[in-house]
Each structure stands twice: as structure tokens, then as C-alpha cells.
């Protein structure tokens, strides 16, 4: 500084009048680009998601497969037919050689695009209907476990202290076991069947959500608006559900999307291990279990690939699409979180 002021005194500028710029008419039509437009947070997430082609393909496939599962066979609720459409050419359980001129283990043809399995059933019909169990169990399980985990994690994170300590140690204990092994044992104890499978993945499935939620709550709890709400004397329950939960939910949504795929694989895996639905059921995993002996070549040395390829490909396609959606949701939410709109990264 000494250089500039030595003996020369202090500089003062006068006549730089900022108001002049504000008051005058703009000289050109150039305008400062205004930052974020006033659109809602979720609208922006959806806008971003919509631009993600991969995620949209995933969403389409999931929607189509779910619809096919619903409309494959009529749906009856307590003896009442609520959905009369039947897309599948044959009842999935029907043994075809009784009424039709087909034999077991026939490769795919025009009339049976995915072939005939070892019990003389139409594989195409079975694959169409086979998503019913896995897909619906996937959604049901995620809805239940997500809710439980959300509440559990919020309580743990919000109250902290020894409550948090105890609650999280319980989560640690549960997470010490692979979900599939826990589900196997639960099914082995309760027996197979639809609601047993739901229970198998629900009883312990909430633990990961709880841990995620707690982490988010801990982060958000320190935010000023939460502090302010608390300082103003808002009730705990109100603070949690009004201020914390809505902000902590994004990572849970991402996990939930991916979790649907995991549960679908899990249900199929149990079916494959003979622990899921009844052996003859048209469920993707159970079909693979039935088809396992088809791996051993038939009498003529022919390889009966269609029996295992199609049901498994259906699971693969569904789960892959679900993961594509999950990635898309993640990207959409992530960008939202960090405020990086349209950046090339991620």
C-alpha cells in the first residue's frame, strides 16, 4: 500500500452513479438472464427426469410389463371379476396336450412363440402372467418397508441420544444378515404363498430405509429452518413431518425405486429355491425352478433353452428397467439437490 499512498493522500471517486443505470431505459434489448424460474421443486425434478431417455425407456417397459401382468388373465376379487381381459392365449396352468395337439418340450413356433415346457404348458402365457406375483410383491413390499423405515429413521435421527443409539444398533444387527437369507428362513417357517412372501421381505426390509432416513434427518436437523421451527416451540411431531421428512425423502425415493427390482429378484430367487409359490404356479422364479431339469439335454441331445431363457429374461428386463428408472430419478434429484441445472456432469 505504501507505494500508492506515500505523500499522495486518499483517493475518492465521485460521479459514479449507479442509479442512473437503474433509472434509464435499457440501451439495448439484452437482458440479464434471471436465475431459477419460479417452478416447484418436484416440477423441476420431473422436467429433468423427462429429458433422460434411458429412464423413460425404463419407465415404458415397466409400465408395459405391469399392464401385461394385469391383463394377462382375468382378475377376480372375492368371486367378482374386476378385470375380464385375458391377453394370454392359454391359461398359464393348463396342461395343453389334454385338449390340444401339442407335446411336451416343443421349441418356439408361431402358435407358441416361447415354446412348450416340460409339463406341456404354454411358456408365453406363463411368462405373461408370471410377473403378477413378483411385480406386485415388489411394489407392496417397498410401500410398506419404505413407510416403516421412514418413521423409524425419523424418530431415531430426530431424537438422537440413547434412543438413536439403541434404534440404530438394532438396525445394525438386522443388516448383518443378507436380506435373502432372512427371507428364506421366514418363508421356511411360515410356508410359501403370496402374503408370506410379502412378510418375508417386509419384516426386516425396512432397516436400510431407516438408516438412510436417519442420516438425512441428522443432516437436515441442523438446518436453520428446523432450528427456527423448534425455537418457535413447534411440537416434535409437527417438526418431523412438516419440516424434516419432505426434505429427507429424495434419497429414500431413489433407494425405493432400486429396491423394487431387488425384491422382484428376491421373490424369484425364493421361487427358484422352491420356497416361493406352489410348485406349479406361473411365477417367473418358480418357472425356472421347474425348468432346471430342462438344462439336462433331452433324449435326442436337444437343448431345451426356451424353458429357462424366457422367464429369466422377463425378470432381467423388468429389473433392468427398474434400475434405469432408479438411475434417472437419482440424477434428477441429485441435480436438484446441488442446484447444478443442466451441468454436463453426473
Amino acid at each position: 500500500m505504501t507505494k500508492t499512498t506515500d505523500g499522495r493522500g486518499r483517493i475518492q471517486i465521485t460521479g459514479f452513479d449507479a442509479d442512473e443505470v437503474k433509472e434509464r431505459e435499457p440501451l439495448s434489448d439484452w437482458q440479464e438472464t434471471s436465475g431459477g424460474e419460479a417452478v416447484g421443486r418436484w416440477t423441476r425434478v420431473w422436467e429433468r427426469f423427462k429429458r433422460n431417455r434411458t429412464a423413460l425407456i425404463g419407465l415404458t417397459i415397466v409400465a408395459v410389463m405391469s399392464l401385461l401382468a394385469i391383463f394377462a388373465r382375468p382378475v377376480e376379487v372375492m368371486g367378482l371379476t374386476v378385470q375380464p381381459i385375458s391377453l394370454a392365449p392359454y391359461p398359464p396352468e393348463e396342461i395343453l396336450w389334454i385338449r390340444h395337439d401339442v407335446s411336451q418340450n416343443t421349441p418356439p413356433s408361431w402358435s407358441h412363440p416361447m415354446g412348450i415346457d416340460g409339463e406341456a404348458r404354454d411358456v408365453f402365457s406363463r411368462v405373461l402372467a408370471g410377473g403378477r406375483y413378483s411385480i406386485s410383491i415388489g411394489f407392496v413390499v417397498v410401500a410398506i418397508t419404505g413407510t416403516i423405515g421412514l418413521v423409524y429413521g425419523s424418530i431415531s435421527g430426530y431424537f438422537g441420544g440413547w434412543i438413536d443409539e439403541v434404534m440404530m444398533r438394532i438396525v445394525d444387527m438386522i443388516l448383518a444378515f443378507p436380506a435373502l437369507i432372512l427371507a428364506m428362513i421366514i418363508v421356511s417357517m411360515f410356508g410359501g404363498g403370496y402374503w408370506q412372501l410379502v412378510a418375508a421381505f417386509t419384516i426386516f426390509g425396512w432397516a436400510t430405509y431407516a438408516r438412510l432416513m436417519r442420516g438425512e434427518v441428522l443432516k437436515i436437523k441442523e438446518n436453520e429452518y428446523v432450528m427456527a421451527a423448534k425455537a418457535l416451540g413447534a411440537r416434535d411431531r409437527l417438526v418431523i413431518f412438516r419440516h424434516i421428512v419432505p426434505n429427507a425423502v429424495p434419497p429414500l425415493i431413489v433407494y425405493a425405486t432400486l429396491q423394487i427390482g431387488t425384491v422382484v429378484i428376491g421373490v424369484a430367487a425364493l421361487g427358484f429355491l422352491g420356497l416361493g409359490m406352489d410348485p406349479g404356479t406361473a411365477e417367473w422364479g418358480t418357472m425356472l425352478e421347474n425348468g432346471r431339469n430342462a438344462i439336462i439335454p433331452g433324449p435326442g441331445g436337444d437343448i431345451r433353452w426356451w424353458i429357462t431363457v424366457f422367464p429369466g429374461a422377463a425378470i432381467f428386463l423388468f429389473v433392468m428397467s427398474m434400475n434405469m428408472i432408479g438411475d434417472g430419478v437419482n440424477d434428477a434429484l441429485d441435480a436438484q439437490e446441488t442446484g447444478v441445472a443442466g451441468g454436463g456432469d453426473k
Binding site: 427390482g261 429378484i265 424369484a268 430367487a269 427358484f272 422364479g285 425356472l288 432346471r292 438344462i295 437343448i303 433353452w305 429357462t308 431363457v309 422367464p311 429369466g312 429374461a313 425378470i315 432381467f316 429389473v319 433392468m320 427398474m322 434400475n323
Partner: peptide, 13 residues
Amino acid sequence: SIPNFWLGLMLIL
């Protein structure tokens, strides 16, 4: 995304 039991079957195939 690939179910491991199916991947196994396909590898055997």
C-alpha cells in the same frame, strides 16, 4: 439387474 440364478443357468446353457 441380472438375477444370479438365471445368469448361472445361462452360463451352463
